[in-house]
Nucleic acid binder design. Structure first.
Length: 225
DNA sequence: GAGTTGATCACT
DNA sequence: GTGATCAACTCT
């Protein structure tokens, strides 16, 4: 630990920064974990500084039986190895030649399920996030400065703003530079459920309502819910 | 709808 | 080993 990530320094980001989730939290059914992650806080400490945001959008991926999951059909490769590992750790992968995406691994080892983090409402380190996002993922004309609510809108954008990449794959989310904290719980009425994004190839599994989002948050990707 | 690059798979 | 295909995306 480099010293910046103390309980006191985290207090501004969470209702009770000392209450990091217990390991058992991540062994609940994956859909329940996904739902409960809404409102929790993701913090990343890097040499450049600390960034943090409140989770407002997630998707559950449910292991071998889920054709949309990277572990569909029991597929196990170096890329998705972290999904098969211990709960409460990060599974970070690269997609479309451009973007990193971060998942929270659920279930005991050898049960490859996870929850993709799709959007955050920024809480801390906003200027660092803006600087990271100012470097476009793809070539193109200069962009207008992003509004706060756009900084972590979408799974690729979230990783770029938070500085999450391959180096965090397999990292423990209960200790270390990338960390989850309890935040303010989201009431049932404030949660929207929809099918997952970008998994049309998965047949019937593509239609399962395993995306969870905080209703009304501008930071939720795609159409507002 | 293009752009980008790594992983994976179906072949030699 | 090699080459083809495609991917849990983002911005125009």
């Amino acid at each position: 630990m480099t010293g910046g990530l103390t309980p006191d320094s985290l207090l501004p980001f969470a209702s009770d920064a000392r209450a990091v989730p217990a390991r058992a939290f991540f062994v609940q059914p994956t859909l329940r974990v996904a739902r409960a992650l809404l409102g929790m806080v993701l913090v990343h400490e890097t040499p450049e500084g600390v960034t943090a945001g409140r989770i407002v959008e997630v998707e559950a991926y449910r292991g071998p039986g889920d054709r949309a999951a990277h572990s569909a059909g029991g597929r196990r490769t170096p890329r998705n190895e972290a999904m098969w590992g211990a709960p409460g750790h990060a599974y970070v992968y690269f997609v479309y030649g451009v973007h990193w995406c971060v998942n929270v691994v659920t279930q005991p080892p050898e049960v490859p399920e996870a929850v993709l983090l799709r959007a955050l409402e920024p809480l801390a380190g906003l200027e660092l996030m803006r600087a990271r996002r100012a470097v476009p993922a793809t070539a193109g004309p200069p962009r207008r400065p992003l509004a706060d609510w756009q900084l972590c809108r979408g799974p690729g954008a979230l990783c770029r703003a938070m500085g999450i990449d391959r180096a965090r794959n397999g990292a423990d989310l209960l200790a270390g530079p990338l960390r989850l904290l309890h935040g303010e719980a989201i009431a049932e009425a404030g949660v929207a459920r929809t099918p997952r994004v970008g998994v049309d190839y998965a047949g019937a599994d593509a239609r399962r309502p395993w995306r969870f989002a905080v209703r009304g948050s501008r930071a939720v990707s795609g159409q507002r819910l």
